[in-house]
């Protein structure tokens, strides 16, 4: 469970990144966090990972009180979350298998457990046949799936995907989001930070919209009126195709 209570965060240079944000994400939810550049999305992610500290308020993530947590507990907080980045952040000198296994090695997992679980996650990410490849030998979408497999390796309660489709083609974007939906169905909380409105609209999940460090919308599906101000072409496109997509993908869209 994630709970922001009146959370504000200002950078040392005085820039106020988040302003009295309150929100609650229950276990097993699927949430999109959207907003323009500088809206506060990245800061919100950094706060969840305790890369940055909140200035005021109260922030609880998986029973860790981040506003008063000592630095030595950060690794243990992060082990309850799996993070996937736009630029994948894979170990270039390790194979697909080793990348996933390394995440388990970091937490001191037994070799026998690593040998048993890595193939499971590679299978989930449809990467079994690519286990011995190095990241540079894979497509963007495949690399992102490796990142997901690694994020899942330590059985985290929360998966945070920061712009996961930013470096992949639109078709692959849908595959990645489908994978996230599958992960969500395993009971994991999934938080996707994105500005791909098309994709957000397609999945009909909870969408939290940030603007100038404040939550301006928190609802299922995108707030078209609000988004229209700065993403007009996308919204128009979304409106036109919305009903069609829902019909064709009834099992996915809600």
């Amino acid at each position: 469970m994630i709970e922001f209570q009146d959370v504000s965060m200002a950078y040392p240079n005085g820039t106020e990144a988040l302003d009295r944000v309150s929100l609650r994400i229950e276990d097993g939810e699927f949430v999109f966090i959207v907003g323009r550049s500088g809206a506060g999305k990245t800061t919100l992610t950094k706060l969840l990972l305790r890369e940055e500290r909140i200035t005021s308020g109260r922030l609880t993530v998986n029973n860790f009180r981040l506003d008063r947590m000592p630095a030595r507990k950060i690794p243990y907080l992060r082990r309850t979350m799996g993070v996937v980045f736009q630029d994948f952040r894979l170990f270039k000198n390790k194979t697909v298998y080793e990348n996933v296994a390394f995440a388990m090695r970091v937490v001191g997992e037994k070799v026998s457990v690593i040998r048993k679980r890595v193939p499971y996650f590679l299978n989930l990410a449809e990467l079994t046949d690519k286990a011995d490849r190095f990241p540079d030998e894979l497509s963007g979408g495949e690399q992102q799936r490796v990142a997901f497999a690694r994020a899942l390796a330590n059985n985290p309660q929360i998966i945070i995907a920061d712009e996961p489709t930013g470096n992949v083609d639109p078709e692959m974007s849908r595959d990645i989001l489908n994978l996230l939906v599958r992960i969500n169905k395993l009971g994991k909380t999934v938080i996707v930070v994105t500005h791909d409105w098309d994709l957000v609209n397609y999945y009909k999940k909870r969408v939290i919209t940030l603007e100038n460090g404040k939550i301006v919308s928190d609802r299922v599906g995108i707030n078209v009126e609000h988004v229209e101000q700065y993403e007009a072409p996308y919204v128009q496109h979304s409106r036109d195709t919305d009903s069609e997509k829902t019909e064709n993908n009834g099992g996915v869209a809600e």
Binding site: R72, P75, R78, R79, V83, R89, F91, V106
Partner: peptide, 16 residues
């Protein structure tokens, strides 16, 4: 450096 940053994200302790 990059490797260390990734290690931190996946929960490596300072000792590790």
């Amino acid at each position: 450096r990059q490797e260390i940053a990734i290690m931190r994200y996946i929960g490596a302790t300072s000792a590790f």
